[in-house]
Amino acid sequence: MDRRNNRRDAEGSSVITANRLLDGRIVWLAADGEWSPFIRHAHVYSNADIEDALKQQIASAQDNELVGVYGVQVTVTASGPVPITSRERIRAGGPSVHPDFTPEWQEHPAVSPA
């Protein structure tokens, strides 16, 4: 994971993200400890508190079948956390050039493996 993506301000809020080992898809750590494909489910930490949670999640990444665990700074809005960088907004929403390839698409694959 690129170090620049894990940078946070001293103040502010962040969420924890990773890629799933088996399929590489992006997931976000929810308040109940589950990993959701939807950033709206992500638990929001204050930047002052996130380091311990991150350490714990990085340590258990293999058990949770995850890779590349890191924190993403967000702005908290009425519709949920929104990353402050364009990179992370694209991660959260899917590629901008394929509007149908949102995280929801993953739940209903168009083509099943033969």
Partner: peptide, 8 residues
């Protein structure tokens, strides 16, 4: 095989 932004 790379791990990219959204998937492998």
């Amino acid at each position: 095989l790379y791990l990219q932004l959204h998937a492998y």
